[in-house]
Design a protein around this nucleic acid. Structure first.
Length: 973
DNA sequence: GAGCACTGC
């Protein structure tokens, strides 16, 4: 029976593991010793093949030819074990693994007896194993190759065909010779029971074995050899031919691809499937056909795993103010919980809000729930995302993006309209959820200090991390839903809030690791994909490979095309689908097209496929273990994108992508040891690696003064906070006491970086708000405006330079782009002609519209002054004066305030012009320290606009400035 | 002569 696991018991268990010194030493000591033993075993294993650890390509590859390797037998019986030992010439039992758990090494057991063993990993001799495989090659190749002999004589071959054939022949000779030498084939015979003629007819033997395997099905645990056979078959298939194939040429290609360059995987664990067998009961299917769609939806609701927990859940919500809900994918938590709460009457006291990290999620979930409730979207059920508020007075269930709720917080700090707030997907730890948590907790602990009475706090009264404008809301329920890993952490953060667990529904996923680290993961990924493609039935599932970015995806695409080119029908068709966020939308659609019969799709994706979009039909996931991650250096104010190893949470998320429509497999291009010891448990939360200027402004405008003591779940580096405070002070958003000024209050209204907000606020003075909001909108869509296809780079670049005539600077160029587009009545054709991405332009139009609305709110008149660029540049300077740089003699630049050497980004219109003084939008660290989006300015503007920040000595002639201190040049020189 | 993972307001 389902049960509420509210749970001190559960908590204690986990505590014990993480804090070993606590009360029960004996057990943790034992655990520690066991861990150590496992570790030692593992390290020994690693030492055995230490050459593998090299980063060099050649060496790493050579390790694939090691003399010993490991075979995994899951669910094996004792007799099965004995047969396996005999069959494979086992040299050593390496260790035992419990299947069905990630904690392979954690839970490895020492003994080998017992009636039902868990999985066994055996160390076998490669040579022995090869012999066995080769015997099969001989049988299958012989006839075909002999058939082809005549080709050498009569027919003129192409070079490729000739080599192919020769290669095949060589292998044949080699194999034949070896099996003749080793006249001990019988030693490797399949066990008698599998061998109807007791003997020599190898082909029959294999087909019998294969038949048994097919009959028994992959998941059949009654047949101890089923999985083993499947595994072997897979191994054999990888190295040789597709079993039963009639296409000769295909086989030779297999050799070309896989035999030479094969990657060995160890199946290490299985992510258990949960409840995947209890789909809609079949007998109810017929009945439901007759019912209305609405009734059917109601029935579907009852088949969700969460349905069984409905009453307990409502009880738990009733009893606790904060509840952490652990619901795995497919449990139905996002759609059902708000409905349950509504049915239980919570909506009588106020709305139920449910936050999502992504816009599409908020929209689609709302649409689904409105269907289930039989109401029109936007009435009782609605959603609210930026640019689109689909709610009304009637709305009771409101799905929204987390950033949207944060914005609402600004206008309504007690969330008066809500009776329940549910933060979904909290484990993703977006910037907004982290801030929301801090805010809610501050208000909750404030409530606890003040007791049960409802209290209005007077503004400014309470300091030290507590809200001063929030009203205590003892009736507000907070639900936090998260994936398994983080639940304890959330619970601890919210003063041991109870945890409610709901099982999910997904299919099991086999996880395979490489035996040795792969030095070139791009190549390894491609080889693995081809291995899968060639050896597995087409049509059984598509492949998803994770890469770090566009460039990698493009090269992978080329290599794949190159390797499959000219093979025509020799291998099943392979459809290559690249996907990344910057890919034009019409090309993105390709991945959602169903795979044609007899073909296989291979999707080359960035992280976008990890959470943001789901592709049906994926059965194989290849995970090289890297992604690009933004990091921010608060000291230099420099951002950079670094290729970083992913976290365990990420790796599991990726693996799970293969088990959405059926059992899946995940091939990790790193070793199990890497996984357990090198990968972090969780990705560093965004709040710890980003520029906090906007966060600080938001919190300040909510009346939170003491940011250094604000209770963040994972506090950001103090340096980043101080840097943000310093910047806000310089911009005039905060006064010397760190309090929000009038300027700051206006700035906080804009959903932009504070420097952009300041630029807009300052545009009032320079009477050019119309132009400035266009620039701000263009700047905030970022760098995806220009479209630069590989084959038309020159055209794209000349098109771009057209906007730079007169060396007006990048900001003005962006303005020109926007206004030209507007003049063509927002023409798509115009965008194509100028190599500009329509999507980005539409987005900047949306942002601009929003900003225009907000101008009214902060009472800034929309004024245009397009003929004179100087006021526009001055307004930009008013926002970006801390980002000034001066040219040095060698053409590099030096930032004025916190001196460091930087360069103009080559894509800038001013890259060749090199003005004496520039102002830049952002610093990025790529191959060099670059300033992106640069505009020329007059140095005296700095002193005029920001006298508190610059003095004359900062901006005078470089000649005097560059001299060392006290070198005798007075500043008046 | 570089190179922009992904969200969100």
């Amino acid at each position: 029976m389902p049960q509420v696991v509210v749970n001190m018991e559960e908590k204690r268990r986990v505590k014990r593991r993480s804090i070993p010194d606590e009360d029960d030493d004996s057990e943790s000591e034992e655990e520690r010793l066991r861990d150590q033993r496992d570790r030692e075993e593992l390290e020994r294993h690693l030492k055995d093949r230490d050459a593998a650890a090299t980063r060099k390509l050649g060496e790493a590859k050579s390790t694939r030819r090691e003399e010993e390797f490991y075979v995994v037998f899951p669910y094996i019986s004792v007799s099965g074990f004995a047969s396996a030992v005999a069959l494979l010439g086992v040299q050593k039992v390496f260790f035992l693994v419990e299947v069905g758990s990630f904690d392979v090494y954690d839970k490895a057991v020492g003994g080998g007896s017992g009636a039902s063993l868990p999985s066994i990993v055996l160390k076998v001799s490669r040579q022995e194993y090869l012999k066995k495989r080769e015997e099969k090659i001989v049988n299958q190749l012989r006839d075909e190759i002999e058939d082809e002999q005549y080709l050498f004589d009569g027919v003129k071959l192409t070079e490729a065909e000739y080599r192919e054939l020769r290669y095949k022949k060589e292998i044949y000779e080699l194999v034949k010779k070896r099996s003749e030498d080793a006249d001990d084939i019988d030693e490797y015979r399949m066990p008698e029971a599998y061998d109807q003629d007791g003997g020599v007819n190898q082909e029959k033997r294999f087909s019998v074995a294969m038949q048994r395997y097919r009959d028994s099905g992959a998941g059949d645990k009654m047949n101890p050899f089923a999985e083993q056979e499947a595994w072997e078959e897979h191994q054999i298939g990888k190295a040789t031919l597709k079993y039963g194939s009639k296409d000769r040429k295909q086989k030779s290609d297999d050799f070309q691809f896989v035999f030479e360059d094969q990657i060995d995987f160890i199946k290490a664990s299985v992510m258990d499937g949960v409840n995947f067998e209890d789909e809609v009961p079949s007998e109810s299917l017929d009945k439901s056909m007759e019912k209305s769609a609405f009734e059917k939806l109601q029935e579907d609701r009852k088949t969700l795993p969460i349905y069984a927990y409905r009453d307990e859940l409502l009880q738990a919500v009733d009893n606790h103010q904060v509840l952490v809900i652990v619901g795995e994918t497919g449990s139905g938590k996002t759609t059902q919980i708000p409905q349950y709460l509504h049915e239980a009457g919570y909506t009588k006291r106020g709305k139920i809000g449910c936050t999502q990290p992504r816009r599409v999620a908020a929209m689609s979930v709302a649409a689904r729930v409105s269907q289930e409730m039989g109401v029109k979207l936007g009435h009782e059920v609605g959603y609210s995302i930026r640019f689109e508020d689909c709610t009304s007075e009637k709305t009771l269930l409101k799905y929204m993006t987390d950033g949207m709720l944060l914005r609402e917080f600004l206008g309504e700090p007690d969330l008066a309209g809500y009776s329940v707030v549910m933060v979904d997907e909290a484990h993703e730890r977006t910037l907004s959820t982290d801030i929301l948590f801090g805010l809610v907790k501050a208000s909750a602990s404030f409530a606890m200090e003040m007791g049960r009475t409802t209290i209005w706090a007077r503004e400014g009264q309470i300091r030290g991390g507590k809200l001063d404008i929030a009203r205590f809301r003892p009736d507000l329920k907070l639900l936090i839903s998260s994936a398994t890993l983080d639940a304890e952490k959330f619970s601890d953060y919210f003063d041991s809030a109870p945890i409610f667990k709901i099982p999910g529904r997904r299919f099991p996923v086999e996880v395979h690791y490489t035996k040795a680290p792969e030095a070139d993961y791009l190549d390894a990924a491609i080889v693995t994909a081809l291995q899968i493609h060639v050896t597995q039935q087409p049509g059984d599932g598509d492949i998803l490979i994770f890469f770090t970015g566009q460039e990698e995806i493009e090269t992978a695409e080329e290599i794949l095309k190159h390797r499959t080119r000219g093979l025509g029908t020799k291998i099943p068709e392979l459809i290559i689908c690249p996907i990344y966020a910057n890919l034009p939308t019409e090309l993105q659609a390709k991945i959602f097209e169903p795979t044609p019969e007899g073909a296989r799709k291979v999707v080359l994706a960035t992280n976008i496929a990890e959470t943001s979009l789901t592709i049906d039909g994926i059965k194989y996931v290849i995970d090289p273990g890297f992604c690009k991650m933004k990091s921010y250096n608060p000291r230099t104010g420099m951002e950079s994108l670094l290729v970083t190893p992913i976290s365990k949470a990420s790796a599991n998320q990726r693996a799970g992508r293969s088990g959405r429509t059926g059992p899946g497999k995940c091939f990790r291009l790193y070793t199990a040891y890497n996984y357990y010891s090198d990968l972090d448990d969780n990705t560093v939360p965004e709040i710890q690696r980003t520029n906090l200027a906007n966060v600080v402004l938001t919190l300040k405008s909510l009346g939170i003064h003491d940011l250094l003591n604000f209770d963040f779940m994972d506090p950001p580096p103090a340096e980043a906070l101080l840097k943000a405070l310093e910047l806000l002070f310089a911009l005039g958003a905060l006064n010397k006491l760190g309090e929000l000024t009038k300027v700051g209050r206006r700035m906080a209204e804009f959903p932009l970086d504070p420097m952009l907000s300041k630029m807009i606020v300052a545009s009032e003075k320079y009477e050019c708000s119309d132009e400035i909001i266009s620039i701000a909108a263009m700047l905030s869509v970022g760098s995806s405006i220009f479209y630069r296809p590989k084959d038309k780079q020159v055209h794209a670049d000349t098109a771009r330079m057209n906007f730079h005539t007169g060396n007006v600077g990048d900001h003005i160029a962006l303005l020109k782009i926007y206004s030209s587009w507007k003049e063509t009545n927002y023409s798509t054709q115009w965008c194509y002609e100028n190599y500009i991405q329509v999507r980005s332009m539409k987005r900047s139009r949306d942002i601009r519209d929003q900003l225009e609305g907000l101008l009214e709110r902060v009472e800034i008149e929309l004024m245009s002054n397009s003929n004179d660029l100087e006021p526009i540049k001055k307004a930009i300077t008013a926002g970006f004066f801390p980002h000034s740089a001066r040219m040095q003699k060698n053409g590099s630049y030096r930032t004025v305030k916190h001196p460091q050497t930087v360069y103009i980004h080559p894509t800038s219109g001013l890259a060749q012009v090199l003005p004496r003084w520039v102002i830049y939008h952002e610093l990025v660290l790529t191959t060099k320290e670059y300033m992106r989006q640069v505009t020329e300015l007059k140095p005296e503007w700095l002193v005029e606009i920001a006298p508190h920040y610059y003095q004359m000595k900062d901006v005078e002639d470089p000649g005097s400035k560059k001299m060392p201190r006290g070198a005798g040049r007075a500043s008046q020189d």
